[in-house]
Design a protein around this nucleic acid. Structure first.
Lengths: 256, 256
DNA sequence: TTGCTCCTCACGTCACGTGAGGTGGC
DNA sequence: TTGCTCCTCACGTCACGTGAGGTGGC
């Protein structure tokens, strides 16, 4: 018994065009009627299912052709006791299949990242801005990675805030450790403000711009946060605590 | 400051051909020198990084173009208070992004299956035969699924072994429950053998073929095992216990 | 002037899909 | 005879890659 192309395609769950395609590439070779019509049998069905199964492993048609041809040759020479070279070479510790698995793992890692990002964007109250944040974050992560590889090949001094800034930051951090309410750290906030004034060269607009940049830190990419914290030789959460304290102090000053 | 195409490609971590490609599809529009040379600026870098980030979400260039164009239009009309329609439509409960996420999830499921199969094949002592088993298994799983959907639309009586076989199977199963060593079930094995003889119409070769098929059940696809067990209205493990007992009984008979 | 970079076609890859124009089978 | 199925090109899709043949910049 044999099937016409359409019936066979439906039976196997593929399209007619897929059958044509596989035939063109030598993966399938159905008999033909006198008029040239394709006639598929159960043997073709088995072959097709092998192709579908191997494709589900992510193999290309070329690779599948090699494997299937090999199986066919294998069957023909089985009696001679020979072993198929192609299949042997595909496996083993350095085999092509191992490399292929590595590729699939890579693919899965990227897929997982994409899914995590999509989830975050969808769950956000403002998806459009969440998408923008994702884009900004992705760029920063890339630069961070690049910076790291650069750092490992071309050693350079770590980025640092100015010595006086760094010292002041540490004093404030320690003061907040002792007294989280921030009472003890108030005078230090004034000194920070003065330092800011100095760095802005006394220009009001510049100082405002600097303060504004700090105030917007909630929407900075994570990479930027980590980077700025590293300038103060601090962890991002410690840095955030100090920054929040300085924000509040600036607001109090402005209100007076 | 601006970059030539090669320098820019290296900076951004893409190929020159990719830059050409994006430009052809309207995703990038660098300035040109008098001689027609592309000149990229930081603005182009930002644009390119947005493209790369969106691509990492699995979006097509066409979709990205829509989003990016939209962002540009958005920026131009921001002052008017209008909201971008395309971005709005991409999100939300019925949004395109949700459908896209579903696609990615599907993809990941398939990837996981492929990885599991590849692991099994690699860990196997005989990878080539493991691959063959995988192919056979995949085909069976497909038919099983098909059979299920057929069953739900076209109701039909469940497949069953003959009444006498089924009854005998149950007796053996019960006997093994009471006496796992199989002593009590010996006479039943003889009756099973007789039944086999009857079904083979007394033909020795046919009987041997039937026994051989049973003996090879270790390499049957899981689906076949489940199917055959279901013929006896049994779970695969119960069925396997009875089958193993009958195997041993047949060997004892042959040895005599 | 000599390499090196850049340019634009045009075609290739991968796994099919689409559609035209024509013919065979029941 | 009338639909319906089947056939074979040939070209399209997607995201680029390859290579030819030619020109600009330092």
């Amino acid at each position: 018994m044999s099937y016409a192309v359409r019936a066979f395609a439906e039976l196997a769950g593929v399209t007619v065009k897929t059958l044509h395609h596989y035939e063109r590439h030598g993966l399938l070779a159905p008999k033909r009627s006198r008029a040239g019509y394709r006639r598929y049998t159960v043997r073709d069905l088995g072959q097709l299912e092998a192709i579908i199964a191997l494709k589900s492993l992510g193999l290309s048609l070329r690779q599948i052709a090699a494997l299937v041809d090999d199986r066919a040759r294998d069957a023909r020479v089985k009696a001679s006791g020979l072993r198929s070279r192609a299949i042997k070479e595909s496996f083993g510790p350095a085999g092509a299949l191992r490399a292929h698995r590595e590729q699939l793992l890579q693919k899965r890692r990227r897929l997982d990242e994409a899914l995590a990002a999509l989830n975050a964007v969808e769950r956000d109250g403002d998806p459009a801005s969440a998408l923008r944040r994702f884009v900004a974050n992705a760029s920063w992560t890339k630069w961070e990675a690049k910076r790291k590889t650069m750092a490992s090949t071309v050693p350079r001094a770590p980025d640092r805030a100015s010595a006086s800034r760094l010292a002041l930051f540490r004093e404030i951090d320690a003061a907040l450790d002792r007294d989280p309410s921030g009472q003890a750290a108030r005078p230090l906030a004034a000194r920070w403000d003065a330092l800011l004034e100095t760095e802005a060269c006394g220009d009001r607009a510049t100082k405002a711009a600097l303060q504004n940049a700090w105030a917007n830190r909630r929407i900075w990419p994570d990479g930027v946060r980590r980077y700025v914290a590293s300038l103060y030789d601090a962890q991002p959460d410690a840095w955030e605590r100090v920054a929040a304290f300085l924000d509040a102090a600036a607001t109090r000053t402005a209100a007076r």
